[in-house]
Write a protein that binds this DNA or RNA. Sequence first.
RNA 1: UGGGGAUUAGUGUAAUGGUAGCACGACUGGCUCUGGACCAGUUAGUCGGGGUUCGAGUCCCUGAUCCCCAGCCA
Length: 576
Amino acid sequence: MPDAEKRATHFIEDMIDEDNRSGRWGGRVHTRFPPEPNGYLHIGHAKSICLNYGLAEKYGGEFNLRFDDTNPIKEEQEYVDSIVRDVRWLGARWTAMRDDDPNAGVLFASDYFQQMYDLAVLLIRKGRAFVCDQSPEQVAEFRGTLTSPGRNSPYRDRSVAENIELFERMRRGEFPDGSRTLRAKIDMAHPNLNLRDPVMYRILHASHHRTGDEWCIYPMYDWAHGLEDSIECITHSICTLEFENHRPLYDWYINAINEGNPAPIHHPQQIEFARLELTHTVMSKRKLLELVRGGYVRGWDDPRMPTLSGLRRRGVTPEAIRAFCADIGVAKFNSTIEIVRLENAVRNDLNLRAQRRLAVLRPLRVVIENYPEEKVEELDAVNNPEDPSAGTRKIPFSRIVYIERDDFREDPPKDFFRLAPGREVRFRWAYFITCKSVIKDAAGQITELRCTYDPATRGGDAPGGRKVKSTLHWVSAERSIPAEVRLYDHLFSVPNPEVDAPGGDYKANLNPASLVVLSDCRLEPSLATVRIGDRFQFERLGYFCVDPDSTPGRLIFNRTVTLKDAWIKIEKGRAR
RNA sequence: UGGGGAUUAGUGUAAUGGUAGCACGACUGGCUCUGGACCAGUUAGUCGGGGUUCGAGUCCCUGAUCCCCAGCCA
């Protein structure tokens, strides 16, 4: 990734540096991202992708995208497609990737099923695996507990010949689901429960999204995963902390295969790191699925979701996500990142590239009494003060304009220096405006402001250097266009929705104000020609992007993130 | 009465026996045609207790706390 910045090395880089010094892998670095296609990718996966791809890139190595598709019951092609799309969007480049074929170079564990099967037969021949007829309940009962040893399965000492025959019959489909398993013969008293004769294969008469009905036995993750990495000659198998307990089992499998083997298989080094946790959201696939299925959000790509598709629809750029991942670091400490860090990365990125526009979300009508009725002026506005090459555009100014209701106070509190009766402010790129009077309806609601403008301040500067305390955004009433704007806030109203869950239900912490739809917004006319996905800064408000729900006649914008707002901070401080 | 990990400002993350630094947050101030951005400053930390050493976040001993593991899920 081109935007990798200079920073201290983390522990995995230190390990690779050490490997390179010792010549362990001959200078080779080969990583992979191994998702199970049973859900959509989220920001936590982005951390793993950035880590794995980033290492391959940094060390001139290779990076595989491989699906860990060993459980047909939970996996679907829809998820495969979305994951390929998201990894590509994030900017990772896998080995043999092509831009004209989405699936080129994508790898699948299911392509290795026969090799895995052959290796399982090898372990049976070596007396290291056996077919077990225990029921799932019996297996659990015989496993023992955390503090007490298990007992051997009564089927543990079957002959090699019988095991081979039964395993072949399992594959042929002669037995019902759950009736038999293939298990490794290790140690039922081992303090690490993963080594108490773990199941290697289970019978599953289920159709697989890629292999169809070719198989009715499927390898367990622990058996399959290490072999996948071995087959692909992965050097550094990077995974999350909870698999630390499994590493001895992967090592056992490969050692058992290689013992006395004239053609030993590759033995990758597994390294564990802490997965990403974020405040004000949830990250487990199960809970995200529940939010989608339960209608709590509008889908996997709801802009409030931490999914990559949600973030993309929200207007977050892949560059911002990569910068965020680089910023938070990699370690073995189970930490929770404050979501403002992500928001900050988004602002930093968009500040530099998003063009500025004027948009009024909650319009308040303003009549400029001394401005001619029919006159319209095209005023010059800078597109991006951070990027002179973005140029300028014209904005029409006229007698009647809209400003933000929040930008006027009839009785302004201290430190409020926006518009108020008798006060002069600047209209961005236009004129100095003074509020002369306030018009209200019968209910006492402000419906209109009557103001005057100073013709000498055209463009926004006073000739004598006269200052105003604030600059407001505005749009011409007649020459602006309507739009719907969707304001998003944190999905959950508390930092740790799973920990502080009333009644044990994290959903009780859903933020009722996470989506606010404003349907009467007014935009400057240059926005009439935008395309879906285009991003802008609406000055003084935040960053917004065009939602796919937009139609030619009706523009819909999503608020990606607000600008920092010093005034809100002052107000909140006063409330306290 | 198990095994495996972890613990540095509010939140993260560096420091690999030698000045505890950085980012975000918070708070000041400056600047500004976005109360944005930018600039300057302030705040605040090595889980506890022993030990080794001229010197310990780092090494040793000993406690504490937190996370993971008893799916034919991954």
